[in-house]
C-alpha cells in the first residue's frame, strides 16, 4: 500500500518548481554565479598588463600539443598541482586567450577567481566573504579586494619564504635574552609515558 505521504513529495516539488522557488538551479550554461549573499565588491585590476597577451598572436599558428614537455621562454616554469597539471588544465586549447571556466574568461581577466575556485572552492568562498584574500583602502563603504593572482603566481602558487623585518629593540640598559627558554615537555607526551608503563606491566 502506498502511503499518502509518499505521494505528497513529487506534488510538493512540482508546485514549488512552478512557483519559481527552486529556480536557483536554472541555466546550467551560466555556471557558478558567485555567492549572492556575499557583500558586494570590486576587484582591483592587475598592476601590470600581461607581457605576452594576447596568446593567440603566436598560438594561432602553432599546433596544440597536449603531452607535457619542458617549457621554454617566454613561458614560466609550471609548479602547480604537484606535477599533475599541464597548461591545458587551465588554458583553453582552442582559444589560448581565454581560460577554461564556464563561461570562458580572458586570460587577463579580473575574474580569475572563477578559475581558481574550480579546485580551491573553500578558499574561493572565504574570498567572497572576506576571510581569505586582502581588502585594500577602506574598511567602510565600497569593498575593494585583490584578486587571487595578485598574491599567488598561478604558475608557482606557493609563496616563497623571505627575510623578516628586523626584530624589536631591547630597551636601553637591558640585554636581549641569550636564547629561548628550555622547552617544556608537553603534557600529552608526559601522559603517554605514564599510560604505557602500567600496560606493559599488565602483560608481564
Amino acid at each position: 500500500m502506498i502511503r499518502p505521504v509518499t505521494l505528497c513529495f513529487p506534488l510538493v516539488y512540482l508546485i514549488l518548481t512552478m512557483a519559481g522557488v527552486a529556480s536557483h538551479a536554472a541555466d546550467p550554461q551560466a555556471g557558478f554565479q558567485g555567492y549572492p549573499e556575499a557583500p558586494a565588491f570590486t576587484v582591483l585590476p592587475r598592476e601590470a598588463p600581461l607581457k605576452n597577451y594576447p596568446c593567440m598572436r603566436c598560438h594561432d599558428f602553432l599546433k596544440v600539443k597536449t603531452e607535457p614537455r619542458q617549457l621554454r621562454a617566454p613561458h614560466p616554469e609550471l609548479d602547480h598541482g604537484a606535477g599533475r597539471f599541464w597548461c591545458l588544465e587551465c588554458h583553453d586549447p582552442e582559444n589560448r586567450n581565454s581560460l577554461r571556466t564556464t563561461p570562458p574568461i580572458a586570460t587577463n581577466s579580473n575574474e580569475i577567481h572563477t578559475l581558481c575556485g574550480r579546485c580551491h572552492a573553500t578558499q574561493e568562498r572565504d574570498w567572497y566573504f572576506g576571510a581569505h584574500g586582502k581588502r585594500v583602502g577602506l574598511w567602510q563603504g565600497e569593498r575593494e579586494i585583490l584578486d587571487c593572482v595578485r598574491c599567488h603566481n598561478p604558475h608557482q602558487p606557493a609563496i616563497q619564504p623571505r627575510k623578516p623585518q628586523p626584530p624589536p629593540a631591547v630597551r636601553s640598559g637591558l640585554e636581549r635574552p641569550a636564547g629561548r627558554p628550555e622547552p617544556v615537555v608537553p603534557i600529552w607526551e608526559q601522559a603517554v609515558d605514564g599510560l604505557e608503563q602500567p600496560r606493559e606491566q599488565q602483560h608481564e
Binding site: F129, H132, R135, G137, L138, W139
Partner: peptide, 28 residues
C-alpha cells in the same frame, strides 16, 4: 575616517581582517 589600520594594509598575506562588529554583513 573609514580607512583600514596600517597593519592590516601592510600585511602581505592578507591575514588581517578588520571591520565593524555591529554590521552583520561585515567581513569580520
Amino acid at each position: 575616517k573609514g580607512r583600514l589600520p596600517a597593519c592590516a594594509e601592510a600585511c602581505p598575506t592578507g591575514a588581517r581582517v578588520f571591520g565593524n562588529l555591529l554590521d552583520p554583513h561585515s567581513e569580520i
